[in-house]
């Protein structure tokens, strides 16, 4: 749910990075944080366990510039991917404007990818959102690993509707900004539609 403030001429949108445990959601936000100018970002907040697993969420506010005199701000969140944190995942999805599904390309994580995708669909539906209708992009992460499944195979299993997708290696930034720009554009385009 975006927040438009006519008085301060700001528009705020919420993007959530979803996906199975250890797929690289937090790494995406860390890379974005490290590579953006100090003026355009706020603090990266990570509520994580002692072993650096996301416990509740990561949060990164970003300014993307102005459109027609309105400052556009994006609030990026990650969910905790571990299966048993489902209650927290549901909370993070509240008010979401766009979703990035980060898939782990490793063959042994295929089952976990499928489960997480299904979990996303169910949790969105609980909040009254339809995964087929909201701004949504898929990122195939960990393309650098030798046990990565071919992209054709990942597409067949995870992207039957052929939504926008990107290949990534999050720690080195490959595909990270393409993914972010992709989803941000879809969110803004959706806002434009909503205004008509």
């Amino acid at each position: 749910m975006s927040f438009i403030n006519y008085s301060s001429r700001e528009i705020n949108c919420k993007i959530v990075y979803y996906g199975p445990g250890l797929c690289g959601k937090t790494t995406n936000l860390q890379y974005i944080y490290n590579k953006t100018n100090p003026e355009t970002k706020g603090k990266l907040i990570s509520l994580s366990t002692e072993t650096d697993r996301t416990l509740f969420f990561d949060f990164l506010p970003l300014s993307l510039g102005e459109i027609r005199g309105f400052k556009t701000r994006f609030h990026l969140y990650t969910v905790p991917g571990q299966v048993f944190y489902d209650a927290s995942r549901k909370l993070i999805l509240k008010g979401v404007d766009g979703v990035v599904f980060v898939a782990d390309s490793q063959v042994e994580r295929m089952e976990a990818n499928i489960e997480s995708m299904e979990n996303l669909r169910v949790n969105l539906a609980e909040q009254g959102y339809d995964l087929n209708k909201i701004p949504f992009v898929i990122q195939y992460n960990k393309r650098d690993l030798p046990n990565a499944v071919g992209v054709d195979e990942l597409r067949k299993v995870l992207n039957p509707r052929n939504v926008q997708d990107h290949q990534a290696v999050a720690p080195t930034g490959v595909g990270v900004f393409d993914t972010l720009k992709g989803v941000a554009k879809l969110v803004l385009t959706e806002l434009k539609k909503g205004g008509q």
Binding site: I11, E66, I67, R68, K185, T189
Partner: peptide, 17 residues
């Protein structure tokens, strides 16, 4: 009570990126 975004163009969005 439409959004100000009704008038933005695809080019406006592209320019941002």
């Amino acid at each position: 009570a439409g959004s100000p975004f009704a008038e933005i163009s695809d080019a406006d969005i592209d320019n941002l990126f």
